[in-house]
Design a protein around this nucleic acid. Structure first.
Lengths: 212, 212, 212, 212
DNA sequence: AATGAATGAGGGTTCATTCAT
DNA sequence: CATGAATGAACCCTCATTCAT
């Protein structure tokens, strides 16, 4: 008789480390969205995850680390989103840029919970080098990718004197500003409207590639 | 009943109520920039203003009120800045729009202390209706004014099919995104660069009025 | 977010919730007796119980609740004392009344710590409906029981025209007044003397049942 | 021409010292009744008197002194009341005792504001020797006077074996207990009922002099 | 691995007292 | 004499962290 060993640690009564960490990070995101960063306590997060008080220190050692991991999670997810969007897009620069727009205002990215997290950390970033570094890194990566894309686009068309870096920064900034509107004034801004605003910019800059 | 008389009667200055309030609001701005909102304590603000612990409750009743007044102060100042910029500008729509760009990236507005305050409150705004209301109001006012200006510009030139509201929202959003870059990544963003980014958008949208 | 980890992990004892609560209530009684209600601070009570600052909020949520629970504890204990006295007494009404007198001036009841608590709460009761309610309830219960007893006694003897309710109220009031003397002027009042005073009243009212 | 000097400092814009002090003491009594001793702050008293913050320290140096003066005021007033009652009474001991009963439950004495003050101070008296001394002094004076009166009554009648001191203490205690009922349970106790309770005691003890 | 009672530093706030006006 | 802005110690309470279970 051969006892086939369980593939996935079946008798385990407790979640794996990674699962618990993810569970807690998601609880943190919900808590920041619901209560704000300043009222997000360890107890609040643990309660949100329906786990006990001490659990966070067990898995993250400190609140500070939990918050940093949460920010990193959101940043990684954002990068993964646009990377996937690029992979799924056509080969032309225009199609790729279009795909990025869709990604930036897709459900998972501009979900108001996630936006809350971004703005919460941006709000603290001036006085927190660690937060700032993570945010700046994300910015830089996105900006580089976008600059390349814009450079390609400019090379294709009759857009004399247009600096791809400035256009890219402008586009990235506009996204952030539109996210703010989604967060602060959801009644007068929606992902769809945000995309139209974005399209207007693209059509103005690259009339050969985009139309209103 | 515990009697704790002040041991010393140190440099007692007397200022008008309004002066004290302003002094404390400015101290709050500095503290938010230096420490972040979450570590801006009553003691920190009072210390920043070189006044005693109890002073804030005396003038603002609670920390919450102080913060709201601080946000309102920054919002009012912002409005005053662009109103003044419009008054000082020429009569043409293009000149007026140009003046707004300068205002948005002038020293007093995109001072990193002030930006810290904006992002600190935006970060909490989802869970704080009071903050959100003040921010949304500012947004709305600015947007309306800018929409009118864009509408004027569009009427003047051959810009068929351009929706002034969308352009205005795009411009306002871009400003906010550029402020974020100034806050988060001051090494690779400056007010001057931000203005250039902005100009690129204007030149792209309104080639008859603006050039790169 | 200020991180302040406990530097030491001192004598951590673990007691059941009920034990801790009782421990804290007893510490509160001692503190009220020693310092008065107005100087009974959370720190004082915690110190009296040799526990840490935060412990009270952990078990009682607020100071107010601790005080109410303390009053309730003393009130419950008082009721238990006279109920037990009645159970242990003989069957005759006179014997039962006699037992009540002993109970009212027994060590546990007219212990000056407990008396301090009663008077502390009575002193605040006009402005605190919650306190007043608890005190009034105790009064009512005692009065009813005593009225029944007096009615029985009156029925037995030649006491024409005596209203049992008035006698009962008089007896209960006298107890309270004697407690006050024990509290305020312990040099000229003692439980023994108080009992003699009480006996004089009984002998005057019910000469067939009691003698001087 | 003779300028007749004003008899009563007429041009004075401010009240005399004594008037101010009395005004503040009365405000203190109202505040203790309304808010309780523990929430009677300097600001509350000053506000009750419609005067400014610093006024109390000006006239009483400290809160402690104000409270002591307030207690003394109430105690003096109580003594004055029964002294006046005795003066106005007939010459017989029975009439004098009767007058005391009326005094004890007259409007000015068993006004709930005043009672609040008494119980507030009694509640703190164990831990405050100064309060206790004033209260004990009042007790002693009253007790002595009442003992004399009872001794006279006993001498007049066939009351063998009755100790006047014990009767006096009993009567005084009963008053205090009845005041407590008036404070704590005003719905089921009234000055009139209190007097009837008191009368029952008198009639029981001194049947020759008092009837039910 | 997980719990939750316990800790204690630090938070916002109150308030007796002082003093320039 | 009177005011009320200012002070700062001490209050109640919160919460990140620890650790016996």
């Amino acid at each position: 008789m051969v006892v086939s060993p369980p593939k996935t640690a079946p008798g385990r009564r407790t979640a794996s480390k990674a699962e618990r960490r993810l569970q807690l990070i998601k609880a943190t995101i919900r808590s920041i969205a619901k209560r704000g960063l300043s009222e997000t306590t360890m107890a609040a997060v643990a309660g949100e995850a329906r786990l006990s008080q001490g659990i966070i220190n067990l898995h993250f050692q400190s609140k500070e680390r939990l918050l940093i991991e949460t920010l990193r999670y959101v940043a990684d997810e954002y990068r993964a989103t646009w990377e996937k969007a690029l992979q799924g897009a056509g080969n032309s620069n225009a199609e790729r840029l279009e795909a990025l727009v869709y990604a930036d205002f897709s459900k998972p990215v501009c979900d108001r919970n996630k936006l809350s997290v971004w703005f919460a950390f941006w709000g603290e970033s001036k006085s927190r080098p660690t937060y700032r570094k993570i945010c700046a890194e994300r910015d830089r990566e996105y900006d580089e990718m976008l600059t390349d894309l814009c450079a390609g686009l400019i090379a294709e068309g009759p857009y004399p004197g247009v600096d791809p870096a400035l256009v890219a920064t402008g586009l990235a900034s506009m996204s952030e500003g539109l996210w703010l509107d989604l967060l602060v004034d959801p009644d007068s801004m929606s992902p769809e409207k945000a995309m139209r605003v974005y399209q207007v910019y693209l059509a103005g800059m690259f009339p050969k590639h985009f139309a209103y």
